[in-house]
Computed example of a mutant assay.
Amino acid sequence: MDPRSEVLLRQAELFGGSVLLAGLPADDLLGQLPMALGWSWHAGDHARLDARFAERTTFSVTPPQAPFDCAVLFLPKSRELTSYLLDAVAARLPGGVIYLVGEKRAGVERAAKQMAAFGTPRKLDSARHCQLWQVRVEQAPDTPELSSLAQHYSLQLADGPLNVVTLPGVFSHGRLDVGSALLLDYLDKLPGGHLLDFGCGAGVLGAVLKRRYPDSQVTLLDVDAFAVASSRLTLAANGLQAEVISGDGIAAAPAELSAILSNPPFHQGVHTHYQASEDLLRQAAKHLRKGGQIRLVANRFLKYPPLIEQHIGACHTLADAKGFRIYKAVSG
């Protein structure tokens, strides 16, 4: 059981009714709270929860339509996303109660101050290195319009400007990260066919690929619902059409790809996770056609070449700059 869930269950009498659990972990909390509903924006967590608790979770960037008496927000990493999520549930709960639970080192005390816009936050419990806060919604906000919270920026590329739209919580919100900027310089001479932007984020790579290779099928894949929504907005802002899908890692990708391009994720919340990136390297060959390529950017300290050599093919370093490396391999 996730320690945040354990803290909630110490106060289980508060959550016996129709409570919305927003951003809940994929543990047994729904089993312990049979009247609760789940709202997730992580495709993997949602799939695991839905397999165990059918039709009790929603995968979306907006709260489920089903009514709820109170809501618990599991603290996300992003302050901007926290603000949106709090507003989204508070707008549905005038006079109701919102709870916030999170790890101390994730900044739950700081995040609790964001609830002061609705009323007076109160700490209810502290255990398992986590805290549980409560606020009664005395001043309910208007329902937030997610698109109005988007940040826009333009990339000046050789074939013209690219307009990028990012939503709260999406990696590198409002700016282009250094790794992706480096990879953009190494997208030439890709084989024709089906191209995949894995871990697409705001859709920068996918949009560039579709514009540069208009005759190729392009798919963008991410585990996060807000990233999927951002990618669709970025494509639309540039008059481009491509498939955008959600899924938990490379297993959700199509087969017979001609190339996989990625700035693969290795952070989740306040913890460091390499699973999605390592799974990508171990399983990419299953999704690539013979002679298909993978090109990815990674922090220099990450030991990816041995995995690439073992599971895909000979690993070539195309660039080494600014603490990042661009790797390329061809599937045999």
Rank of each mutant, 00 (worst) to 15 (best):
S246A: 15
P121G: 05
F53A: 06
G31L: 05
E278P: 04
A66Y: 05
F226C: 09
S5E: 06
G193T: 11
S147P: 05
A26I: 03
L257P: 07
L195Q: 11
E309I: 03
V270T: 09
L149R: 15
K113L: 15
H173G: 03
R56S: 11
G44P: 04
Q131F: 02
R212V: 02
L220P: 07
Q156R: 15
G102W: 08
L167Y: 07
S180P: 11
I308F: 01
P306F: 05
T82V: 10
L176P: 01
E6I: 02
Y327A: 04
A117Y: 10
Q65C: 01
L176S: 14
L233T: 02
S231R: 00
A158L: 15
R289A: 14
L183G: 12
P64V: 13
Q114Y: 07
G269V: 04
F59D: 11
F324N: 07
Q283R: 13
R325L: 09
L182Q: 09
D177I: 09
F171H: 04
Q275R: 15
P265M: 05
F226R: 05
L318A: 02
V101G: 14
R300C: 04
E309M: 04
L124C: 10
S246L: 05
A127T: 08
R52C: 14
A47C: 02
C315F: 03
V270L: 03
V270G: 11
L33E: 07
E145A: 15
S258Y: 00
